[in-house]
Amino acid sequence: MLILHCPCCGIDADETELTPGGEAHLTRVGPDTPDEAFEGYLFMRENPRGVHFERWRHAYGCGKWFHAARCTVTLEVFGTYPAQTAKPPADLLQTISDKRPGWTWRDLA
């Protein structure tokens, strides 16, 4: 079972209390962008075998959104942080690099 720490209310919640929200740190596009950019925003998502950054909502708790970094293969959770954060915290990136040398994910690595 997947257990994530909600950084907003401080509770460790299992996946039945949470709602997944898809990939984190997407670049939003505006109404004046070309169709190709809008298509990329809607449909093109990372689906890595390994480290992945995701959005989660503590649905049956505080109701707030947060981000989680986890491994999609082992379900190991590297850490969570508030959704208002534009990039993952440096200490979290360092933790991931220590455990998974050579990992990459977009421009975050």
Rank of each mutant, 00 (worst) to 15 (best):
M1H: 10
I3P: 05
I3Y: 15
I3C: 13
L4N: 07
L4G: 09
H5P: 02
P7N: 08
P7C: 08
C8P: 03
C8K: 11
I11S: 15
I11G: 03
A13S: 15
A13W: 09
D14L: 05
T16N: 15
T16P: 06
E17N: 11
E17D: 10
T19E: 13
T19P: 02
P20N: 11
P20T: 12
G21Y: 05
G22R: 09
G22K: 08
G22W: 09
A24W: 12
A24E: 07
A24D: 10
A24L: 15
R28V: 14
R28E: 14
V29K: 15
G30C: 09
G30P: 03
D32C: 08
T33I: 09
P34L: 12
D35W: 14
A37K: 14
A37H: 11
A37I: 01
F38S: 09
E39F: 10
E39I: 03
L42W: 09
F43I: 00
M44K: 15
E46A: 14
E46F: 10
E46V: 02
P48S: 08
R49C: 02
R49D: 08
V51A: 13
V51L: 13
F53H: 14
F53S: 04
H58C: 06
H58K: 07
A59C: 01
G61I: 00
C62M: 02
C62K: 09
G63A: 06
K64H: 09
W65L: 09
F66M: 00
H67Y: 15
A69F: 04
A69P: 00
R70S: 09
T72Y: 07
V73T: 15
T74V: 05
T74Q: 05
L75H: 07
L75I: 00
L75T: 07
V77K: 01
F78P: 02
G79A: 05
G79R: 05
G79S: 10
G79C: 06
T80R: 04
T80E: 00
T80M: 02
Y81V: 08
A83C: 02
Q84A: 11
P89F: 02
A90L: 06
D91L: 02
D91V: 06
L92S: 04
L92T: 08
L92H: 04
L92Q: 04
L93H: 07
L93A: 03
Q94P: 00
I96Y: 03
I96G: 01
I96H: 02
I96A: 00
S97R: 15
D98I: 03
D98L: 10
D98P: 02
K99T: 04
R100D: 04
R100G: 01
R100C: 05
G102C: 11
G102E: 00
W103K: 01
D107M: 07
D107P: 00
